[in-house]
Amino acid sequence: MTLETIDLAAGPEDKIILRGVTLRVPKGSVTALMGPNGSGKTTLAYTIAGHPAYRVVKGRILLEGEDITSLPPHERARKGLMLGFQNPPEIPGVRLLNFLAAAYNRRFNLQEKLIGSPRPELVKQAREYAVKLGLSEDFLHREVNVGFSGGERKRAEMLQILLLKPKYVILDEPDSGLDVDGVRMVADAIRRLVDDGVGVLVITHYARILQFVEPDHVAVLVNGVIVDEGGPELARKIEQEGYGAYVAKMGGDKGSGGGL
């Protein structure tokens, strides 16, 4: 049971950033995707999640064997694929709890009105998770991401993921903008997801978050290509040595991906 990409080439509009990425994210484990800035990490996240501006020119995306390469993003989500955004956008006018209720009804195919009172059990659960993530209860009544600090946005993303119980989740830089306590809370949440059998792909530039959650598998993305793979020791190696060696190996190739 995996989420996987096979020889995926893709990018925004007519650019090609990913140049044949094959990656497996098994259920109930943590896969870390590491790479320097501009290596295509977020492009991979957006492409897997189905951002309409990102085009797949080659390869496939499989969700437990089902080809989802051309599915619209909301259908991917309803099948249990979610992305925790690095910079989630503001949704003015829509309160977090109402947003959660609408998403919850769709995720679990409940034949309820799009807009209506949230189910009591959902409200109860949302409050519990909010407290665990260090958010106050009235946070649920604020408009989605509007005026949230960087740390609050990250926590709100985790809150949504915990409630919507995806089968696979991609976390794009889940610890950026968080203090140590925040990183710990996010790490706890990731462990909880893994215990529940969720396949987690953590996208990160630094190894910091990986000190709190040990990955089962680490892949290194440089210039749109997976250049190395290994166990948790690979993350530690990168923490000490950086990406210099990989970038050097890619040599003159660096930066040419965009024009392909």
Binding site: P73, P89, I91, F99, R106
Partner: peptide, 28 residues
């Protein structure tokens, strides 16, 4: 914006549902 729609799609909402939610929020 497209990013707002994508974000809401990623939570399982179709384009129409996302728009309805935003419109109702706008006038609430």
């Amino acid at each position: 914006s497209e990013d707002q729609l994508f974000y809401m799609a990623n939570r399982g909402l179709s384009e129409g549902e996302a728009k309805a939610l935003i419109v109702l929020g706008f006038i609430q």
